[in-house]
Nucleic acid binder design. Structure first.
Length: 598
RNA sequence: GGAGCCGUAGUUCAGCCCGGUCAGAACGCCGGCCUGUCAAGCCGGAGGGCGCGGGUUCAAGUCCCGUCGGCUCCGCCA
């Protein structure tokens, strides 16, 4: 067999006149009668190979019989293409390989879909034949890009003295957080391991153990429903440092992100990244992960309607809710377009969508202005800076609902009407998260981040006070102002990283468990190992984890993380390639003491 | 758990609203021609019965119900 001397995509000026041997896949064959062009492809790119019948009849005949995705080795001589026949779309487009010999290494069936960028192919078919999909240039580049990212990331960590440590995959199920994937134990009937949602507790233990700086590029598993940016198994760039505060973690994170953007995209990001508080981003964007590449900010109207007779607005304000609006400036939306947006917000649980359109003559076209006083209307238009052609959309409801409706509507409009500058990267730290929020379903407070996140020192008395008061409203009020020492990195409206300074004192950790109504017995049972560790000289520590899949997808301008994962799952959590999940043999079930009930 | 869009040749789609030459196009595939193309070109050919199951009807890709699958979103995701 001919042995490769270089990759197809590497052919350049340097190889002119030299004999080369290439191994790869037949991308395309063009036979012009007497001369055949074979585009040969490998992971580095494509190069055109050529053979003429009258010069090399044997190779010509074989070349003529080649079909897409046949595997061949080709020996030949590199030459400059005849003038006027260069192909600027190929990296190797100024050169071609004059075929001396072709070895057919394997043939291929007719393809289920073309290995090119032109034809859109359904996700199902692509994943079914992922090996073919991955041969496509864009997918190959996504995977190679990701590979390069690993290298940059490791280099940055090593530069800063981080130690790479692996943590267990067979671990313990913990309450709080996402649903666990469970693994039945054969040796311990009725007991289960859980696959880790993240190495959170292990990395904290490593800090207690004195490793000082830890990192790991690691799979995390959560048994929750999928989204374009969520897979049941995904990769975190996880790290933790001792003897640090927020600023250290943030500064290091920025360096890591900057190095990635610089080395992989050639972009110099401006440092420090912007920071906004959780409260501010919720007020302005209705989201804790805002995309700031376009406007349409939420504007508060409670002062305008504080005494309004319009029932919908009045009730919202009376019930401690909010009245807010966004102004889609100069959009001149038609009634049909407004109806479409109304339908959209209804899928989010809105009853309807109040709107005002400012017509060209300045008249207001709206189903609701008739309920406003003259003063309200005037102040409203002023607050919203409403001009001819503008369309205003309102939401009046509980604060959570207003944020949800207008935040999602804002994004929907931004995408639908092309308001987003796709060439930009918007990097933002969201800080000052509340430590906990009330969970109406569970009727208790739950961590916004996770139960190991430290509250601000000065806010701890508020927690103690809240635990003493009886009234729930009073509790909520007190706890609302307890801030977590947490920080999220948001890029283009995606949460790509999150972390916090952790609790390193047992008494404080116990206080938080108490706040979260995790009883002493349960805390001991589930987190006893952590509590004990905190008693034996736990250093102050904190860290962060980046969602690598999301980060790579954003850097590559992709909408779905499936495109940066070699073997992703479909929305129903199925791997079409292997057919997982699947039934197993009764013997296997018996071994692990599992009986399946319908 | 819920909502929306989609499912027709190997692939991407049109046809569905207004049931009755509606089973089509392009690419791919097969055969032939062609010495400079590069998503080659030209000529010819094969290939599906419309995801699956019911129902309505004289008649169903076309209407109705159910179901499965893909995608997007809500819930969920400490």
């Amino acid at each position: 067999m001919l042995k490769r001397t270089l990759y197809c995509g590497e052919i350049s000026e340097d190889h002119l006149g030299k004999e080369v041997s290439l191994c790869g896949w037949v991308h395309r064959v063009r036979n012009h009668g007497g001369v055949v062009f074979v585009d040969l492809r490998d992971r580095e790119g494509i190069v055109q190979c050529v053979v003429e019948e009258r010069i090399n009849p044997e190779a010509y005949e074989l070349a003529d019989s080649l079909r897409s995705e046949y595997v061949v080795a080709i020996r030949g001589t590199v030459r400059r293409r005849p003038q006027g026949t260069e192909n600027p779309r190929l990296k190797t487009g100024n050169f071609e390989v004059v075929i001396d010999r072709i070895e057919l290494l394997n043939s291929s069936e007719a393809l289920p879909f073309p290995v090119d960028e032109e034809t859109p192919v359904s996700e199902e078919i692509k994943l079914n034949h992922r090996y073919l999909d991955l041969r496509r240039e864009s997918m190959r580049e996504n995977i190679l890009f990701r590979h390069k990212a690993y290298q940059v990331i490791r280099r940055v960590f090593l530069r800063h003295g981080f130690v790479e440590v692996e943590t267990p995959f067979l671990t313990k199920s913990t309450p709080e957080g996402a649903r666990d994937f469970l693994v039945p134990s054969r040796l311990h009937p009725g007991k289960f391991y859980a696959l880790p949602q993240s190495p959170q507790l292990f990395k904290q233990i490593l800090m207690v153990a004195g490793f000082d700086r830890y990192f790991q590029i690691v799979k995390c598993l959560r048994d929750e429903d999928l989204r374009a940016d969520r897979q049941p198994e995904f990769t975190q760039v996880d790290f933790e440092l001792s003897f640090v505060d927020e600023e250290d973690v943030i500064a290091f994170s920025e360096e890591l992100i900057c190095d990635l953007f610089k080395e992989l995209l050639g972009l110099e990001l401006k440092r420090p990244f912007d920071r906004l508080s959780y409260g501010e981003v919720m007020e302005r964007y209705g989201s804790d992960k805002p995309d700031r590449r376009f406007g349409l900010e939420l504007i508060d109207l409670s002062h305008v309607f504080k005494d309004t007779q319009f029932r919908v607005f009045r009730e919202a304000l009376e019930n401690n809710g909010a009245v807010k609006a966004i102004n889609f400036k100069g959009s001149n939306l038609s009634r049909k377009e407004i109806d479409e947006l109304t339908q959209f917000v209804q899928t989010l649980g809105a009853k309807g969508l109040a709107w005002i359109k400012v017509e060209a003559d300045g008249k207001l076209n709206s189903p609701i202005v008739k309920f406003f006083t003259e003063r309200e209307t005037k102040e409203l238009l002023k607050t919203m800076d409403a001009k001819a052609g503008d369309v205003l959309f309102f939401s009046a409801d509980s604060k959570d609902m207003v944020y949800k409706i207008l935040g999602n509507l804002r994004l929907h409009i931004g995408k639908k009407y092309g308001l987003i500058d796709q060439s930009k990267f918007d990097l933002l730290w969201v800080v000052d998260f509340p430590l906990v929020e009330w969970d109406e379903e569970e009727k208790r407070f739950v961590s916004l981040h996770h139960p190991f996140t430290s509250p601000r020192e000065e806010d701890i008395p508020l927690i103690e006070e809240a635990l003493k008061v009886e009234s729930l409203e009073e509790k909520k009020k007190l706890l609302h102002s307890v801030r977590a020492r947490a920080y999220d990195l948001v890029i283009n409206g995606y949460e790509v990283g999150g972390g916090s300074i952790r609790i390193h004192r047992r008494d404080l950790q116990e206080l938080i468990f108490k706040l979260l109504e995790i009883g002493k017995v349960e805390a001991e049972e589930k987190f006893g190992f952590l509590l004990r560790a905190l008693q034996f000289g736990a250093p102050p520590h904190g860290g962060l984890a980046f969602g690598l899949d999301r980060l790579i997808a954003i850097m590559r301008g992709l909408d779905s993380i499936r495109d940066v994962i070699a073997f992703p799952k479909t929305q129903k959590g199925i791997c079409p390639l292997t057919g997982a999940p699947d039934y197993v043999e009764p013997k296997q079930l018996k071994d692990v003491h599992i009986k399946v009930v319908e």
